[in-house]
Design a protein around this nucleic acid. Structure first.
Lengths: 215, 215
DNA sequence: ACCTGAACACCGTTCAAGT
DNA sequence: ACCTGAACACCGTTCAAGT
């Protein structure tokens, strides 16, 4: 019984049955012991899920989009690969939104993104704050979309939104009414590409406050 | 026993003890019945939490930042008010990341943000896609920060990250090493203000693909 | 229709006691 | 030090049976 063994078993259960089944009791059963035994190596369920997340992050393709011309496309490529990895594990994406990861694969991803921003000539202080938002948006996007395909009432939720938007009263919600089409328009791919280009533009052109440059 | 009564009881429990206690069994106990009875009015725990979220959204101050000069400051004001509301209920913020809300208070917020972007002269198609990202970032920010103060090991997690960043090897993680200070710099307020200004700049200056303008 | 008791199939975490 | 049985205090959801 080791931490690595427990995490490996957790990843196996994740791939086979999803994060919902990655529980202390289930893992204990898998490793032929009782749940109490795991607490010697793992602080809590949250700790375990964080370890599983970092393991998965090893699959992100850091060279994605290297063929493409500009640095913005390369950043987009890496982040879309990151989203792809999280897409495969809906619940993990949701847990990643609240987590403050610091594992080795997370650091590797951070280093790569900072290198790409540097290549693009983005001022370092802006790159530092910007990379946080890039990862935050990517994580949230994965969490949001993965909510869709996972649960059976996701389709219901989506059409409830579409109905609410199109049914908004012209008198009280003129902008929602006028833009209902645009709000729902575009494929996920189109929206993600636009989103990351938009973020790159914003990060590139928005200076941070002077005193925050070195702290 | 009505849906409104159940939601009202849920909000009361949320305020008193947090979302973790807003469970079917607990609410049933509160309303002097069995958990099975609630399923006549509420489809699932997720449905219940979504209803509670929309209720809370009624507290967002849509006029925040109206004193300030430019539209960007007004958008930032509304979103910081939104973050403030979610901050008070950590777990709700996390659940909001995956949810696709469509309640009346959510629509009211959407309408206000679209109006502010319109005032700012942002092209409608860009405003439509942009408002999604603005709300997504605000929600994720609340979820992230609320993770901190809530759990006792949040401080541990944070210092683990700080250590990882400062301890990154110069050879393998040169950018992380060089920017460790900047990555952690700034107050939450400074970072949020920068973030929303950055997003406003990006949204304003990044055209959407032609075919997505009307769909 | 609406309501409910009881059951099914689970959870995380702690702790005293053992090896 | 490491491991464990057993317990404490819970969950969501379903369904047959009642009113």
């Amino acid at each position: 019984l080791t931490r690595e063994g427990i995490v490996a078993a957790a990843v196996a259960v994740l791939r086979a049955e999803g994060l919902e089944k990655v529980t202390m009791r289930r893992l204990a059963h898998e490793l032929d012991t009782g749940p109490a035994s795991l607490y010697v190596y793992v602080a809590s369920t949250a700790d375990l899920h964080a370890a599983v997340l970092d393991e998965l992050l090893g699959e992100v393709d850091l060279e994605a989009g290297v063929g493409a011309g500009d640095w913005q496309a390369r950043v987009t490529g890496v982040l879309i690969s990151y989203i792809g990895v999280l897409f495969a594990h809906p619940a993990l994406a949701r847990s990643a939104v609240a987590a403050r990861p610091s594992g080795r694969h997370y650091l590797r991803l951070l280093e790569r993104l900072l290198a790409l921003l540097d290549e693009g000539g983005v001022p370092p202080a802006q790159a530092a704050w910007g990379v946080n938002i890039l990862l935050q948006v990517a994580t949230a996007t994965a969490a949001e979309h993965s909510g869709r395909e996972q649960s059976p009432d996701a389709e219901v939720e989506w059409s409830a939104l579409a109905q609410a938007l199109h049914g908004a009263a012209r008198a009280t919600h003129p902008h929602v009414r006028a833009l209902a089409g645009s709000l729902l328009a575009g494929s996920p791919q189109e929206r993600m590409s636009w989103c990351f280009r938009m973020l790159a533009n914003g990060i590139e052109s928005t200076p941070v406050p002077a005193q925050a440059k070195e702290a």
